[in-house]
Amino acid sequence: MAAITLIDQVSSDTALAGARVAEDLRRGRGAGLNRSGRFEREQREAFDDGWETLDDLPPLKTTVQEEKARSIITRNTSPDISFDRSINPYRGCEHGCVYCFARPSHAFMGLSPGLDFETRLFAKPNAAELLERELGRPGYQPRTIAIGTNTDPYQPIERRYRLMREILEVLERTGHPVGIVTKSALVLRDVDILARMAEKGLAKVALSITSLDRDIARTLEPRASAPHRRLAAIKGLSEAGVPVSVMMAPIIPALTDSEIEAILEAAAGNGATEAGYVLLRLPLEVSELFRDWLLRNRPDRYRHVMNILRSMRGGKDYDAEWGQRMKGQGPYAQQIGQRFALTARRLGLNQRRRKLTTELFTAPQTGGVQLSLF
């Protein structure tokens, strides 16, 4: 059985190498593959036919398509996350984090979860208008809205579209609580709104830091803010009175788990008061994309990383079972959890978790909402 497994793995590694997009076409991107989405009737891959036609192709550029969304608040009933509603002003993410568990969603758009996910983006310019309308619906009950749980709201195209700024303006005006997760220092642009909301118990922010190693960060999440800039964002938000937490999301065994203590110490030193983590998740196409990244960037760690990961996932690349998908199981997963908890306790993190208030919410009377007769 072991011999068969080894042969299958070698065959899989060879297939990955053969399907890669040329490096000069994808420079500055996270994924190395761009296979067709799994719902497509045809599977297409670029390859060199000997006529050197690939040399004539231009590098991949980011394109943005505006999408007129019909709703903006997404609901969920997941038992292992702390929120029941979220907002995603964008589809796809230019940060290019190769491990992003949101990548498979691009297949529903007829696109690849690979390079398409980070180069062919969708923006929802009517997000703030829809939000105001939905908050004003009769019977709406406020609870914290999470933003940044799927794709990053402060990815580079936010500089142009400013959708997050507009969304925050609606939330501030209505007194609605919001929790933000991002890998971008661009969040500091909105520190004025966030500080005013935080003073009323309406806002908190989490900065996600995977590694302090700039070489790892540059290839693993190529267009996200550099680690030192994320730490600076933690400091800037904290000094403005905004509650800040640090998320190690994800922790990658045998690659970034050695940095648990260093990341928590750096974040606490810059003003973070809470901390959390998520173990690397490799659902659907993400598994192939991450394994290809390992082969390109850390080939010496490939087998070690994947073997440990599978030991925490019941022998598979991923286990979607509730209660286990975020933290894993087994001795190695327990060790990660214990190290994280002990370090957080030593640094005084998570001593008191900031709970946001819903008592200040006032339903809007604009945005297409029918006004009261009296």
Rank of each mutant, 00 (worst) to 15 (best):
P125N: 10
K124Q: 10
C93V: 12
Y277W: 15
R159W: 10
I180H: 00
R352M: 08
A232Q: 10
I87A: 05
L57D: 00
I251C: 04
Y154R: 02
R353K: 11
L25R: 13
A195R: 13
L111V: 09
P79H: 14
R346L: 03
S11F: 13
W51R: 15
G92P: 05
R35T: 12
E94F: 01
C97Q: 04
I234E: 00
H176L: 01
L212M: 09
C93P: 06
L194F: 06
L16N: 08
G114K: 13
D292N: 09
E42H: 05
M306A: 06
D49N: 11
P253I: 05
Y90N: 01
P113I: 14
P58K: 05
R296D: 13
F47C: 02
L289G: 03
K124T: 15
A69V: 12
E359I: 09
L309C: 03
E129D: 08
L220Y: 08
A123F: 02
D152F: 07
D49Q: 06
S208K: 12
L289N: 01
M164E: 09
A275G: 10
T182A: 05
R85H: 04
S184R: 04
A267Q: 04
A320L: 05
H304P: 00
A128R: 07
D116M: 06
P156A: 10
T366I: 09
C97I: 11
